[in-house]
Each structure stands twice: as C-alpha cells, then as structure tokens.
Design a protein around this nucleic acid. Structure first.
Lengths: 148, 148
DNA sequence: TCTGCGGTTGCAATTCAGTCTCAATTACAA
DNA sequence: TTGTAATTGAGACTGAATTGCAACCGCAGA
C-alpha cells in the first residue's frame, strides 16, 4: 500500500529534490487531521511541536504537496486559501455557510459528468475544477428568521 | 428601463450615501466594456481620463457596486480578483485556461438545476455559487503536443 | 440660491500575506 | 566520507488592499 510519504518521496525524487526533515514534519502535520487548513493554522500547529518550522518553508512546501497530488486548494474565504487532502479522499465540492463558516462536502456524479460534457463542447481539457456554493445552512436560516 | 446608474443611485440612497462624480466615473468605466477587469486595470483606464481617481476610492467603490448587485468577483487568478458585470449579464460559469489565461464563459441550465437539488438535499439556502474549471484550451493543447 | 452636516476624497502611512535573499546547513549519490 | 546542489530560517521586501486624516463636496432643508 502506498502511503502519502511514498508519494511525496517519489515526487521529490523525480524533481531532484530532497526529502528533508522539515518537509517530512509538514507532511505529517498536514495528514494528521482531515480538516481543511490554512497556512497560519498549519504554522501554529507546527510551532507547538519540538521543532518549529518557518513560514517560508511551509509556503515553499505546500506547492510541492499540491504537485504531488496530495493536497489541493479547496476554497477561499476571508482572503485566505484553505487546503484539503486529495490523497485518500475522493473529489468533492463544497457548500460554505456565510453565517457560521461551516463547510459541507458533497459529491454528485451528475455534476461531474456535466462538467466533462461542457469541457468537451468547448474542446477544453479539464485539469481541475472547483465548485463553491455559498449560502446559509439550516441552523443559520433559523437564526435569521428568528431575528427578523 | 432601469440603467446601472439608476440601480447604483438607489442603492446609495438606501444606505444614505452620495452619488459623487468619482463614483459615477468608476461606474461608467466599469460598464464601458464587458470584459473581466481587475483593480489595476480599472485604475489605469481611469487615469487616462481627464480626471484621475485614486486607488483608494476604487477600492472603496467596488464593494458598493457588488452590494448593488451590479458586479461580482468572478475569478481569482495570479493573486488578483477579477470582476465582471452581473447587471445585464445572466449568470454563467468559467473555463480558465492555465496556458494562456483565456477565459471562456458558459451557462448550462442542467448544472444550475443540479446545484439547486444539492442545496435542497442539505437544507442549504443558496445565495451564490462559483464554478471554475481550470485546464487547457484547444490552442494550448496543440502547443503542448507539439513541444513534446 | 445658500448653508451646514455628514459622507467622501486623495494622499500617505500602514497592514499583512506571501516571496525573496543569503549565509549556513544538510541530504544523498558516488 | 565527501562534494555539491538543494534547503533552511530570519528578516528584508513586495504589492495588493486598508486606514487615518484634513480638505472637500453632495444634497436636503431653509
């Protein structure tokens, strides 16, 4: 079974890059939880460990993880990118609640198919897509209707 | 017939804000072309007119145009927001070419419907959505196959 | 038309995420 | 073990976006 570390090592080797202890720690931390994360949060989590890692290194490592197909930019919200795992987690899209920030993941085969159709129609080669739906979750709808 | 200016004036009035000459010029410039634009470009275009307008004012005005439902952030690319008209232009999604930056707009009713279905399923109230598909346009596919 | 209030402007200073520089360090292949 | 090219962290830097402030001005009421 291939692990995320195998995958990362492979990618680095192919590019003639090194598997350093910093990259290993970042990889480990990224895959220690399945939640969406941003750079600041990751930096904070890493700082708490025995070995702090500089922001610069994190900013340099994330693109490598993306190239390796391990993570991707999932959504943008309040001017920040949030990343999520790709490795071991099937593709999905997001419902993002404007009220409470809650993120609901969903997958709909029909949407995927339709997107492929659209691309075919325009002779476009699909590399990746991102669908973000913003609105209000159930709870926040109730809150709003109460307050008015 | 309601013009974009009417709409903007209305919105400003509702918020107790003024319809200044600067805001008028920005509005006019924004609606002088249907292409996507970013702040720098808009600033450049305005600077060429008789009357230059500061970046700060542009940054302060764009949110007002968005609130008015006249424009929206359409896509983000190379760390910049690109805006597009909403007023007078039916909703659509984007194909963005990674190779040349070309943007193709498309609209697919079935996609819209499916999204509504998904929202219903999760009890989610849809406010807006953004679907961005990244890949390679026809031309760039040819370029790539030639160079390899 | 005139006046005054409060919103608005431009400028320059500031913020802040993200990038870059560079000297010291380290992975790794031979 | 060694040579070398990649990598690191710290802090300087960048550039988009925001803010504080004094001068300015739209506009409703007189």
């Amino acid at each position: 079974m291939i692990t995320e570390e195998d995958r990362f090592r492979d990618h680095l080797k192919k590019k003639g890059l090194k598997f350093t202890s910093e990259r290993k720690l970042i990889l480990k931390e990224v895959f220690s939880s399945h939640k969406h994360f941003d750079v600041e949060e990751l930096f904070g989590r890493l700082r708490k460990k025995d070995r702090a890692i500089s922001r610069a290194t994190i900013y340099r490592t994330l693109p490598l993880l993306i190239e390796s197909g391990l993570i991707r930019e999932a959504l943008r919200c309040r001017d920040r990118f949030y990343y999520e795992h790709v490795f071991g987690h099937p593709h999905h899209d997001h419902l993002l609640c404007i009220g409470c920030g809650k993120v609901i993941e969903f997958r709909d085969e029909r949407l995927e198919k339709l997107q492929n159709e659209v691309c075919k129609k325009y002779g476009f080669e699909l590399i990746e897509h991102r669908l973000g739906i913003k609105g209000y979750c159930k709870k926040c709808q109730k809150k709003i209707s109460k307050s008015t």
